[in-house]
Amino acid sequence: MDLSMILMKLAEGMLVSIEIFVLTLLFSLPLGLLVAFGRMSKCLLLSLPIKLYISIMRGTPLMLQLMVVYYGPYYLLGISLPRGYRFIAVIVGFVINYAAYFSEIYRGGIESISLGQYEAAKVLGYSRTQTFFRIILPQVIKRILPSVTNETITLVKDTSLAQVISVSEMFIAAKALASKEQSVVPFFAAGVFYYIFNYLVAFVMEWLENKLAYYR
C-alpha cells in the first residue's frame, strides 16, 4: 500500500480532527470569556460554583470528562441518546474543558489591565460595555495571545482523545489502518499530520501577534 492510499484512508479522520478543533475553538473562546466574567463576579452564588467547575475541569483528565459527557446521560439518568450524540459529546466535552482553561487566561489578562484604563474611560463617559469592548478587551487579547497559542497547540494534540468514545478521528483511523496493513507508516503519517497542523496554528498565531505588535 503506497503513501497516497494511506493518506486517502486517513483523510476522513483528519477532517474529523479538524472539525473537533475548529468547533472547540469557536465555542470555547467566547464561552471562556463568559466563564471568566462569572468567576470574577462579586456574587458568590455565581463565582463559587464557577470556581469549582474550573477546578474540576483542570484537575481531572479530559479523557475522563469525555467519557462522563458521553456515557453520563445513560448511566446516570437513563436517557438514551441518538447515534449522532457521539460527536456532540466530544464537542461538548472539549468545549467545557477548554472554556475553563481559556477563562483563566482571560481572567489573568483582564486583571492585568491597570485600573487607570477603566477610570480614564469612565471619566470620558464610556459606558461599561463600551469600556470593555473598546478599551479593555483589545489590550487583553494582545496580552493573552501567547497563552492562547499554547492552549491551541495542546488542543490540536488533544483531538486524538476523542477516540476514547470511538469518534473516528485521525488517530483511530491510523490505528485501524496500521493493524490492517501491519505497518507503522500510518502512525508516521498521523504524526506528520499533527505536526503540520500545529505548524499552521503557530504560523497563524504568530501572524496575529505581529498584527498586534503595533503598540506596547
Binding site: G116, Q117, A120, A121, P138, R216
Partner: peptide
C-alpha cells in the same frame, strides 16, 4: 474632564 497623574492614555 480629569487629567491623571500617569496620563492613562489608551495604548492601543
Amino acid at each position: 474632564g480629569l487629567v491623571f497623574q500617569n496620563f492613562n492614555l489608551f495604548p492601543h
